[in-house]
């Protein structure tokens, strides 16, 4: 959890999105979080210039899942030299859509009284996992069968030391739900589902073997291009 985040919300550490030297003294670092269905862009805005900054505004380019600010950014201004401020910007997913490469890439324009600056950042796709992503067991079985094998991707998560219950609990904190669990030949097989805000479902099998720190995640999705990003979320939350 990030500082000040409610327990249970997964929040990757902030990274520098816009270094001061590229933006006439404006520095922005940030991360994304989802809590109770609300997606937020959490930013630290720092004035490393020698004069005050005012007139902040933010705009997103169209992106794969229609992420957009739910309202104008609220930055108390003026921001004095050497001052920094924490800002939370609530987002929605009803903005214009255009497929990005990578899929979770977001291009941002950020304005102040000095100029307009542009940067790209990547959000964890888990911020798009809906709270109602637990698929009915019967539907899961039918869907798993129905999605062709070509749409299955397999990934390894190396050096993970959780048992399957702990893994399942961590994954549930980002709205990946365990639907069934079976143990076969000493391997725990967890069947899981998640639903993206745009209605795309992903189905997963997580294989955990006692004493083996390497997990195998198999993902089946009708839109297999999301699998890589989904895997990154598994890795991030399980290794966090």
């Amino acid at each position: 959890n990030g500082v000040g985040m409610p327990l249970g919300s997964f929040c990757p550490p902030k990274t520098v999105w816009l270094p001061a030297m590229k933006a006439k003294g404006l520095e922005i670092s940030g991360t994304f979080v989802r809590h109770a269905g609300v997606i937020q862009m959490e930013m630290t805005i720092t004035n490393k210039a020698m004069s005050v900054m005012t007139g902040f505004a933010i705009q997103f380019n169209r992106n794969s899942f229609g992420l957009a600010p739910a309202g104008p950014i609220q930055v108390p201004s003026p921001l004095s030299p050497n001052q920094n401020i924490e800002v939370s910007l609530p987002l929605n997913t009803v903005g214009p859509v255009m497929k990005m490469e990578p899929l979770n890439n977001l291009q941002v324009a950020f304005k102040n009284n000095i100029d307009v600056f542009y940067f790209s950042c990547q959000y964890p796709i888990s911020v798009l996992f809906a709270e109602d992503g637990k698929m009915e067991r019967q539907v899961f079985l039918a869907t798993w069968k129905d999605i062709p094998n070509e749409n299955e991707s397999q990934f390894q998560i190396k050096d993970c030391h959780l048992n399957s219950d702990a893994a399942s609990n961590k994954l549930q904190s980002i709205n990946i739900f365990t639907i069934a669990e079976r143990t076969v030949d000493g391997q725990d097989m967890l069947y899981q589902s998640m639903k993206l805000t745009n209605g795309i479902w992903a189905l997963a099998e997580l294989k955990v073997q006692a004493g083996n720190p390497n997990y195998t995640v198999s993902l089946k999705c009708r839109a297999p291009e999301v699998s890589q990003c989904v895997f990154q979320s598994y890795e991030a939350v399980l290794k966090n």
């Binding site: 067991r137 019967q138 079985l141 798993w144 079976r182 076969v184 030949d185 391997q187 097989m189 069947y191």
Partner: peptide, 20 residues
């Protein structure tokens, strides 16, 4: 009965994935 059938189906799925 449906629930039993689903339990059974998940067991078969897990088996098939471990010993294809």
């Amino acid at each position: 009965e449906l629930e039993d059938g689903l339990d059974e189906a998940f067991s078969r799925l897990a088996e098939s994935r471990t010993n294809p």
